[in-house]
């Protein structure tokens, strides 16, 4: 049935944390190249990278096209990403989930 109240508390807290991390925490992210990019630069294969077909997306590189401020643009892109991911992943897992509770997982809980 509906999630117990404390589970709802965890879900709401988790969502708030995710939105804050993406919307505000991302302001403070390092802009240095990541491990793979750095490796590619150092060892000489960075130039083989090509722009993604989605490079012209209005959200490309975690900024919202047409928004001036880096922080607002990046933060909003993060909030949009969290929301889209939540809807897609949550929708998928709700579709896939087990509905018949009489075949609940075994008490040992190995489940896999």
């Amino acid at each position: 049935m509906s999630a117990p109240r404390r589970a709802r508390g965890l879900l709401l807290t988790g969502l708030l944390v995710a939105l804050l991390v993406a919307g505000v925490g991302s302001w403070y992210a390092s802009s240095s190249p990541d491990g793979l990019e750095r490796t590619a630069q150092r060892t000489g294969f960075a130039a083989t990278a090509r722009d993604s077909a989605t490079a012209d997306s209005p959200l490309a590189d975690y900024s919202v096209a047409g928004l001036g401020s880096d922080r607002i643009s990046g933060g909003l892109a993060g909030v949009i990403g969290v929301t889209v991911t939540l809807v897609l992943a949550g929708g998928l897992t709700m579709l896939v989930r087990r509905r018949d509770r009489d075949r609940d997982r075994d008490p040992a809980g190995s489940g896999d």
Partner: peptide, 28 residues
């Protein structure tokens, strides 16, 4: 995943994905 997901854990899984998206934005 069908064996792992029920009414209680499916929303948590969606939230976990959203959190991973957010956390991946934070390059340290």
């Amino acid at each position: 995943a069908r064996r792992e997901l029920d009414e209680r854990t499916a929303p948590l899984a969606g939230l976990t994905a959203a959190f991973v998206f957010a956390a991946q934005m934070i390059n340290f």
